[in-house]
Amino acid sequence: MKRLLAAALLMAAPVLAENDHGAPVHVFEIGGLEILHPWTNATDHDHALVFMELHNEGDAPIEIIGARLDSGLEGQLVGFRMKDGEMGFDPLPPIPVAPGTHLDLTPDGLAIRFDGFTEALEEGHHWEVVLVTSVGVLEIDVSVEDEDARTHGHAGHAH
């Protein structure tokens, strides 16, 4: 029983790796789901979008349901849309990631949206977010990039 508990805790823990250049890379894993490069833009608005790469290394589909903060603020999975020349995001149901495939949450695509912030997100800081999936919940460390960033600062680096 102790080994099972230890294995479960290890599967839900963040893994801090180094790439070929010795720079730290944030990789998080739970139940066969690998989360790479979670990030958001710096903002002083009351909302923010979280982006990341998701890889299902398991043998069953894993649903991405949403996210939350320790403060209780809920993050909703959303999809980008253009309607009548206006950009916006529409709420989405949980999205499955098939075994052996990946799903990218990116600007102008899919994201997790948080509404209701009372403080700014400042570039260079990190933000703790709890990702909610069908295989459990996982605390991830989200990097706050420049307000105009279109990718994570480590994007394209080897893992």
Rank of each mutant, 00 (worst) to 15 (best):
V132M: 10
L73I: 11
L54K: 04
I112P: 04
G22K: 08
P93Y: 09
H126D: 07
A155R: 00
F117D: 02
H26M: 09
F28C: 11
P38H: 05
E63R: 11
P61K: 01
E122A: 12
L4W: 07
S143L: 08
V50C: 10
T133C: 06
N19K: 02
E53R: 14
V130F: 01
G124S: 10
G22F: 11
H21M: 14
L54T: 07
H152I: 06
M11R: 08
E139W: 08
H154G: 02
A13V: 04
D146T: 05
P61Y: 02
V15W: 07
E57D: 15
D44N: 11
I112T: 03
R68F: 02
P107S: 08
P14H: 13
L92M: 15
E128H: 05
G58T: 05
V137W: 07
V25A: 08
V137M: 13
H47A: 06
K2T: 14
N19S: 09
V144M: 02
Q76K: 14
T106S: 14
A42Q: 04
F28K: 01
L110W: 03
H37N: 15
A98F: 01
G72F: 07
E139G: 12
D59S: 09
F51Y: 15
E18M: 09
L77W: 05
V27R: 15
H152A: 12
D84T: 04
E74I: 14
M87Q: 15
E18V: 11
M11Q: 13
F51I: 04
T101Y: 10
L121I: 04
G58D: 03
I30M: 12
T106L: 14
I64K: 01
L92Y: 03
V25Q: 15
L121P: 03
T43R: 03
L16S: 10
G58W: 00
E74S: 13
D59G: 05
K2S: 13
I65N: 10
V144W: 01
